[in-house]
Simulated scan of single mutants.
Amino acid sequence: MKAAVLVQPKQPLEIEDLSIAKPGPHEVLIRTAACGLCHSDLHFIEGAYPHPLPGVPGHEAAGVVEAVGSEVRTVKPGDHVVSCLSAFCGHCEFCVTGRLALCVSGDTRRAQGQPPRLSRPDGSTVNQMLNLSAFAEQMLIHENACVAIDRDMPLDRAAIIGCAVTTGAGTIFNACKLVPGETVAVIGCGGVGLAAINAAKIAGAGMVIAVDPVPAKRELAKVLGATHAIDAMADDAVGQIVELTKGGVHHAIEAVGRQASADLACKVLRRGGTATILGMMPLDCKVGLGAMDLLSGKKLQGAIMGMNRFPVDLPRLVDFYMRGLLDLDTIIAERIGLKDVNEGFEKMKQGDSARSVIVFDQ
């Protein structure tokens, strides 16, 4: 199969022919239909986050099941599935207390000493990144890293549910537990931020404020449900939000991964408000609340992958799209081939478009 391989950080991905193993007892072999380009991948490509190399990035995918292992009961060949990087074991402390996104059990990966899932023709190992490696024509993953969806769902749109939408919408529904009428500011209008804005509209937010330096993204946010849009680089951005909301927002969501945007999220909270950090911040960043913030009941939290429970959440998000509630079409800026993956990341660096999606020939 063909796959885009990260050989060295800060170098273009290389298209290679790789071998993929047969499914083990709890593994699923998937023919990849589509995979979104996520900023999280770019962090690994640029070396900001470490990972054993060579490896195949890509984690926001959908496809069709080709084969399953002997113990797999959740999906079967022919099923249309969405993958999710927050694979869960089902029996650790986090899983049994309903926090599947926090599971870090090694049970969803192959044990040391077992043949690798991915390899080069010479037999050398190619590392699977985030348990998925979806920039490839096939994926071999644990059964708890995918979920079956309605076969009428277009797979290119289903793909972006696997990360951007699960993270953005999941934050609204799961981490924030937004109450209808509450106010929301979303800082950063990329794929995750736009999904959060759309979900806030679905959840009945009273005011949804999009905050981004790029005018085109602010306009896109309005299409997806933002009631107001503010230039993140404006000197009085905080003041504008506080004035609009008569004291600050109930929820401020940081969806870009920058120190300045995280600080802004904390500054625009009303008394009792919550700032939720979604972006992959530089590893040396620290975000905090001051003493008076704490005395005002303000809260700060992380929400990895939107604190999803993806076997339940993903089919629901698909249903939202099928019923016309969730707008995935607007989030997708372009569809490209695997050979164009590097150009896709160059466009991402420019910061003026939404999601690019690799579509594989079926």
Results as ranks from 00 to 15, higher is better:
Thr167Ile: 06
Lys267Arg: 15
Ala4Met: 12
Leu278Phe: 08
Ser40Thr: 15
Met129Glu: 13
Leu289Gln: 11
Leu317Tyr: 15
Leu53Ser: 04
Val126Trp: 02
Gly106Ser: 05
Gly190Asp: 08
Glu46Val: 00
Gln301Ala: 14
Asp352Pro: 00
Asp327Pro: 13
Glu71Lys: 10
Glu66Ala: 10
Asp236Gln: 05
Met280Pro: 10
Glu16Ala: 08
Leu42Asn: 05
Val72Gln: 11
Ala275Thr: 07
Leu289Val: 15
Leu314Met: 08
Gly191Glu: 07
Ala33Pro: 06
Phe44His: 15
Val312Trp: 00
Leu300Gly: 13
Asn144Lys: 10
Pro311Lys: 01
Ile141Ala: 13
Leu194Lys: 00
Cys103Val: 06
Glu60Arg: 06
Ala354Gln: 13
Gly272Trp: 10
Pro154Tyr: 01
Phe135Asn: 06
Arg335Cys: 11
Ile332Trp: 04
Met292His: 11
Pro180Glu: 08
Pro121Ile: 03
Asp293Asn: 13
Leu42Phe: 14
Ile20Ser: 12
Met139Thr: 12
Asp284Asn: 15
Ile304Cys: 14
Ser86Thr: 15
Val249Ile: 12
Cys163Asn: 03
Ile197His: 02
Asp235Val: 03
Val165Trp: 05
Val72Ile: 05
Ala62Arg: 07
Leu314Lys: 00
Gln112His: 12
Gly190Met: 07
Arg271Asp: 12
Glu343Phe: 06
Val359Tyr: 02
Pro121Trp: 02
Ala237Asn: 05
Gly344Glu: 09
His39Ile: 00
Met1Tyr: 11
Pro50Ala: 01
Leu155Met: 09
Gln11Gly: 11
Ala260Phe: 03
Ala205His: 01
Glu254Gly: 13
Cys95Leu: 03
Ala111Arg: 09
Gly273Ala: 11
Ile209Arg: 07
Cys285Asn: 14
Ile172Arg: 02
Gln138Glu: 06
Leu300Ser: 11
Lys339Glu: 15
Met280Phe: 13
Arg99His: 14
Asp327Trp: 06
Leu244Cys: 10
Lys76Met: 04
Gly272Leu: 12
Met307Asn: 13
His250Asp: 15
Ser133Val: 05
Ala62Lys: 05
Glu137Cys: 04
Val179Cys: 07
Val256Gly: 15
Gly58Ile: 01
Gly24Leu: 13
Leu294Met: 12
Met305Asp: 09
Asn131Tyr: 12
Ala67Gln: 15
Asn127Cys: 05
Thr245Gly: 01
Thr245Met: 02
Pro282His: 07
Gly123Ser: 14
Ala148Gly: 13
Lys349Met: 12
Gln8Val: 10
His26Cys: 05
Val357Cys: 01
Ala101Cys: 08
Asn342Glu: 07
Ser105Trp: 02
Leu283Gln: 13
Ile241His: 06
Pro215Asn: 02
Val256Cys: 12
Cys92Tyr: 00
Met348His: 07
Lys222Phe: 04
Gly288Tyr: 00
Leu317Thr: 05
Asn174Val: 04
Val165Gly: 02
Ile209Ser: 06
Pro213Ile: 03
Phe345Asp: 12
